[in-house]
Simulated assay, not measured.
Amino acid sequence: MQLSLKVAMCHELVNSCGLDLSSGLESVPVWIEGKVGKDELPKFQYFPDNVKGPGCTVDPSEVTLPGCSCLSHSCVAGSCCCLQTYGQAYDSAGTLLDLRGSHAAYCTPVFECNALCSCGDACSNRVVQRGLRLRLEVYGTKEKGWGVRTLEPIPCGTFVCEYAGEVIGFDEAKRRQLAQGPEENNYIIAVREHAGQGPITETFVDPAIVGNVGRFLNHSCLPNLFMVPVRVHSTVPRLALFAGRDIEAQEELTFDYAGGYSNPTPLELSIQASRTDALQRKPCHCGAQNCAQFLPLDVSILNF
């Protein structure tokens, strides 16, 4: 299905329960705070997955990874080539097993079963690809603009949402950042993956024009979410956000734009992520005791 047929402007769907930001594109509605009017909503196209943007050489929707031949209800490590090759990432309930997070810019990559696998949709190695399953609400914060809070408790290790948008090339990411004014928000996440002594993989995701609920997540120096690159059908990683601790209902959901988290670190892969707000550093209003006072600004990836 073409993107133009599936994507809807965020203000199009209103029902008796409120406004669904996703216009029905998610499995559960993404609610907008009730007092927010349609004219106040940001103008962007909601889409739950990554889409190919300028400079992207691989279509994120293209199936490029091999699949397993498992015929069981759920794959098991003893017989599944996916789990044998990449390791088991989730328990039987779909909770992330490695909760060490991405402290000091390190985390372990995840490979899920994909469209070429013979296992069923209920396989425990299919989590991020199932999409949003939690009730989230976009709301207006006092000092940080838009934010996202959960309407239900979230156990530690649970997949929350993706940070999805246009996957763009380095030159396009550089052009977009340089073109922004001092009052404009920059949503670009730049992820650099180091796999041992192999090549470095860089991915740039920008949800400013086309994106999902992840574009509204605020930065915190003491976040409750951490980011993990998850590969499903394509070699292009999906930037998945997991709960780093138990999260209570009505809590704001946040992650560290610099990619850090307060957990010990593995060595298999490093992920360095930066989401900066234009080229001028802006104050951080996260309120954490360890607040760095400014939002992260990492120029080493974009190399301005």
Rank of each mutant, 00 (worst) to 15 (best):
L19C: 07
E162V: 04
G37R: 09
I200W: 00
Q280D: 10
C17A: 15
S274H: 09
E251K: 03
C10D: 02
R238A: 05
L225D: 09
P296Y: 08
L132G: 03
G214Q: 04
R245W: 01
E162C: 15
L241G: 06
Q289C: 02
D206L: 03
V228H: 01
F294N: 12
N224W: 04
S274G: 10
A105T: 13
E152M: 12
A77Q: 11
E62D: 15
N224F: 08
V128Y: 03
L279A: 05
G24A: 02
L295I: 09
G157Y: 04
C82H: 03
G147M: 07
L267D: 13
P182K: 11
T201V: 09
C68G: 05
Y86D: 05
P155L: 13
A93Q: 15
C123H: 07
S270M: 08
L13A: 12
P48G: 08
R135F: 05
K38S: 09
L253Q: 06
N263W: 01
C117F: 05
Q180V: 04
S79G: 02
L116I: 00
L116H: 14
S270I: 07
V28Q: 12
Y86K: 00
R245C: 14
C156L: 04
S4C: 10
D171R: 14
G157T: 00
I188W: 00
E62R: 14
S72P: 00
L225P: 07
T265H: 14
A208W: 08
S92P: 00
E137D: 06
I301N: 10
E202C: 09
I188F: 01
F47Q: 11
A258Y: 06
V7L: 11
D246I: 01
W146I: 08
A93P: 00
S234Q: 07
A190F: 02
P199E: 15
R135G: 07
S220Q: 06
T203D: 05
G24N: 07
I189V: 01
I271T: 10
N185W: 08
E137K: 04
L279R: 14
H233N: 15
L239H: 12
W31N: 09
F242G: 06
P109M: 10
K6Y: 04
T235W: 04
C284D: 08
L222Y: 08
T265D: 03
V210E: 00
N218W: 04
D246V: 01
D206C: 08
V127K: 06
A77V: 15
E252Q: 15
I154N: 11
P237R: 07
Q197W: 03
A8P: 00
L151K: 12
V63E: 11
Q45P: 00
L178W: 06
N114D: 10
P48Y: 09
V36T: 13
A77R: 05
D277W: 14
T95R: 13
Y106R: 15
V63L: 03
L222E: 13
F170G: 01
L239W: 01
L65G: 07
Y257E: 09
A77I: 15
N125V: 02
